[in-house]
Design a protein around this nucleic acid. Structure first.
Lengths: 346, 346
DNA sequence: GTGAAAGCGCTAACAC
DNA sequence: GTGTTAGCGCTTTCAC
């Protein structure tokens, strides 16, 4: 047990300096090796690498990024963690990040207004190399700031931003169109729709898709059949109650997301009705719970994990190659399960 | 020769230095104010605070912690994000962290051996002020290192660590005992059990609780009725198949977690049997999906969010007050829903 | 009370 | 190719 030189710093921290001494080269040469710099003699590289290994050297990220390097940390800003939706996206992000040697910093805003922009400021301030934003509302305020600083970022699920932002999204309108058309093909003539939060482009697109499908089928659009929701389960419940109280209630409901579909389930049961016997339901998102509820929910699948992955890929390109903004739209697809059936009478 | 002395640095960063100039005091006084140092004249404090506000100053965490201060970042090490269980805990952690002005760094290990210890090393190396570990297996290897460095950390759901670690856990044995007793009270005499990963103390405790309940009821323990699982849905499926194939299959099954209960559901249906008509099921955890499946799962509720919160509180005490290790065990409780019914014959 | 100065560990010019 | 030297933004003694 020979302790060459002296014991590395107090709390067991081995610095680049220790490695330098151990391998007999300088400070910066170690840095070069560690950063994969090209012009280093192979034998030197080996010496350094071995010394680092022997000493159990681990880079200090803060020092590194303070000094102008990369922190290899990506910030992910999300409104909350309460819905399967976001969890799935994070999974995708997380995996892609690991694969590329980056770490994930999670920022939840809980929809608090000021918080989002404060975060973005702080985040962009140095710790993270880039940002992935899954925001609740149109974030023009800080998007602007990010843009001006030329700070790398990618948005997920918000396609109505005017600027040249990178965006990953799904085919919301098309998905809604197909969901509605499916219901029409089953013979339904009165199809209700519970919208999402209309401040989100996804909610708007889905409503548009719903209307388009009606029109394509030559069916009149009845404003009474559309009630405003906010993407939360509760609003699916109340929205469905409203729809059910109509003089001529719908025989099918398309909700703007799965969570609201679950709310609809409750409301329908509370009214002593059966799914899909009395009312058919189609959701949107295909979160994991969709196949666990009974009856299993027919819904529009969004490739959430894949969207997270795509966001990472674009972001890393921005960071590492300073590539221009890109918009990626991934395909949704209707997943038919057990919550729909042909309209009862004709 | 470069041009020095300029307005707030290039990328719009406002530093403590800018604030100093703006408020006409020195460098270090600003730091004192920002850190809530006591001996600062009130008027000075005001001046500085106003200047900081006016300039939109945001602290640079890296610089701060590099210089010896706190980063206000807590690392959370988890095996994965695939099961409702961990997501719930993270929610609790996240909320408690926000409330206390800390940020959350998420590290997923995906069960890769080396990865866990590498992470712990890197994490403890400076970026984070403390660590919360929700690990898959007994992590003696790096727990030791953490301990030696006197690095603050808390374990969740792993109570068989010998050292003086802080631990947050739930009453696993008691929960399992009650679950089993409930089944016994319903008249079941052949009760199967699918264990969790036996490398986890929670799995062991639950098995112990199961046995204890049988014994308390004067029922013989039949090894055939216990099959090994690993906490994943698939093992619940195969485990149930095994149980069902017995000459005398059980009339009720207690699975060591909810995910495996869902697997049991599938297996039972695949055998053309009905829940709870033919077989009763009790799970453990009470993840959100438990009340969404059909029939709604009777299960032992673990206060997951609360456990996350508790972990944060203990950790922050360690960090801020250097408090001694603590063990907290939160109470589980049986949540009776629709997956059980009295044994058929008597 | 407040300013000056010495680093924290590292990257990135700039020399040699 | 490799060493030298500034800082990155901040906390912290130590003077005054």
């Amino acid at each position: 047990m020979s302790d060459k030189g002296q014991a590395p710093k107090s709390r067991g921290k081995v610095t680049i300096f220790d490695v330098a001494r151990e391998s007999g080269v300088s400070y910066s040469t170690v840095s070069r090796v560690l950063n994969g710099f090209k012009y280093v003699k192979e034998s030197t590289r080996q010496k350094v690498l071995e010394a680092a290994e022997r000493l159990g050297y681990v880079a200090n990220l803060q020092a590194r990024s303070l000094a102008g390097g990369r922190s290899h940390i990506i910030g992910v800003l999300v409104p909350n963690l309460d819905n399967g939706y976001i969890g799935e996206i994070i999974r995708g992000i997380d995996e892609a990040l690991r694969d590329n040697g980056y770490d994930l910093m999670l920022y939840t805003t809980h929809h608090q207004e000021g918080k989002e922009s404060r975060y973005v400021q702080a985040i962009a301030n140095g710790l993270t190399d880039g940002l992935i934003l899954i925001v609740s509302l149109i974030p023009t305020a800080y998007l602007d700031a990010l843009h001006k600083q030329r700070f790398p970022y990618v948005l997920i699920g918000q396609n109505d931003v005017e600027e040249a932002s990178s965006i990953v999204d799904a085919t919301n309108e098309k998905g809604a169109y197909e969901a509605t058309r499916y219901l029409i093909e089953l013979g339904h003539r009165r199809i209700g729709h519970i919208t999402g939060l209309m401040g989100k482009s996804s909610a708007v697109s889905r409503l548009t898709g719903y209307k388009a499908a009606l029109e394509a089928a030559g069916m009149a659009f009845d404003p009474q059949l559309v009630v405003k929701g906010n993407f939360w389960e509760q609003s699916g419940y109340t929205g469905t109650q409203t729809l059910l109280a109509l003089p001529q209630p719908p025989t099918a409901i398309f909700t703007s997301n799965d969570l609201m579909a679950f709310g609809a389930y409750e409301a329908i049961r509370a009214n002593g009705l059966d799914i899909p016997q009395d009312i058919s339901i189609v959701g949107f998102d295909d979160i994991p719970q969709a196949s666990l509820v009974h009856p299993k929910l027919t819904t529009v699948h969004q490739p959430l994990e894949q969207m997270g992955r795509a966001a990472v890929h674009i972001l890393l390109e921005h960071i590492e190659k300073d590539s221009p903004p890109r918009r990626v739209t991934l395909a949704t697809r209707l997943v038919i399960r057990d919550s729909c059936q042909p309209a009862a009478s004709t």
